[in-house]
Simulated assay, not measured.
Amino acid sequence: MGFNILFGAVVGALTLSFSTALAAADLSVEQDVLLRLQQVSENQQLLLQDKEQSLLDFERKLQDAQDDLVDAERELQDKEQELADARSGGETMARQRKLAEHAVSMAKRGVKNRHKRIQRIEGKLTQEQDILAKARTQLSKSRSNIAKQEAKIARLRDEASAKAARVAKAEQQRQANARPEPKPQVKQTLAKTQVKTQAPVAEPPKLAQVDIPKQEQPKVEEPKPEPAVEEQEAKDQMAALDELARQQAKAEEQRLSEALASSEPSGRQLYKNLRIRSESVDAEFQFLGNHQYRAESAVTGGRHMFKVGSHHYRGTIPSSDAGEVYVFLYDTSRKGKPRLSMYRKSLLQ
């Protein structure tokens, strides 16, 4: 009976210990998922800011085009008045009439072209509005996923704490059941005392001796791990997030290529000896032209505060990317705070 209790306590303790180890592994994976979600969200926030700026640019272009149209329509009215005056002058104004007719024709063409320009800008503006709405939806979804992941991690921590408490309780029970074996001298003293104190009892009739096979003691085996469904889901999620990070890295390289292919690819180097720094990063930017800079550095996992010049930027590196080389792109073409983006270099190799 005592052995069965002890065996059950040992098996229970081993099971709980193994479950606790699995829970710790699951928690580590889930925390890395959270960091990658945060990194994706930061990249989406950067894209959203790009689209908001692009929308402002198109709105400004539309306003300029509308102002040009007003000027063109006013000029057309003036030319039409000149033509009317020339026609009222009879044959003496024949040459002026022809010149006025040509001026009116050109003015009408100018008005027509400005209408077309406005239509093109309005079409692009509508596209930008749709893209911006999608970017906002994606960012909102990412923030929702981050909140869900944080809640999941909190639940796993609570479960891990509960399992650890059960392991400690099982260990206490095991120690209580595992009583020490008496020493030989104590056994002999106890036996003699027991013989003296016992009253003589009639010898019971002898029964036929039957050989009873000895029951083998069950072996304590370490429980085999069962497939962790949540861990597999986390790995699948990591793969999906990795693919999304690859797409974002491609978008950054495409943006850089378009910036360098502009009308002034040489640009002007505003900063010399420009570096990016954090607690674990210190790298110098290379000037590429047209206000674009690039740097590479190995990174550590976690939340970072990067400093470039007098500007500060928050960035998240997943724990699984620790030791990886990251590419940092710095765009100083816009007024105000320059744009900093980053991605794991191996994503595009």
Rank of each mutant, 00 (worst) to 15 (best):
S140G: 12
G315L: 07
D78I: 14
A72L: 03
Y313H: 01
E82A: 07
L37N: 10
E279K: 11
S41F: 09
P223S: 09
I121W: 11
Q129S: 14
S88E: 14
S105D: 14
V299F: 01
K152G: 05
H102G: 13
E284M: 01
S278H: 03
T189S: 10
H304C: 00
T189H: 10
E30F: 15
P200L: 12
Q173C: 05
Q96F: 06
G123E: 12
Q175Y: 04
V33W: 04
S310G: 11
Q269Y: 06
Q349D: 03
E52G: 10
K169Q: 14
Q66E: 04
K124S: 15
S257T: 07
R246H: 14
A24H: 12
A103P: 03
Y313D: 02
M305R: 13
G336D: 03
S161E: 12
S161L: 13
Y271F: 15
R120L: 08
G315R: 05
N273R: 06
L27N: 10
A295L: 00
R117N: 15
D331W: 02
P204M: 03
L190M: 13
L207H: 07
T332C: 12
Y326M: 01
K116D: 15
S161N: 11
L329Q: 04
A23I: 06
E203Y: 06
V210K: 11
P227L: 03
M342S: 09
M1Y: 10
L274T: 01
A133D: 11
S17L: 10
K192P: 06
A295N: 01
L99H: 10
P225E: 07
V40W: 04
A202Q: 09
L156Y: 11
A168D: 11
Q198A: 15
T197C: 10
R157C: 05
A228F: 04
S105E: 13
G289R: 03
A234L: 01
P265I: 01
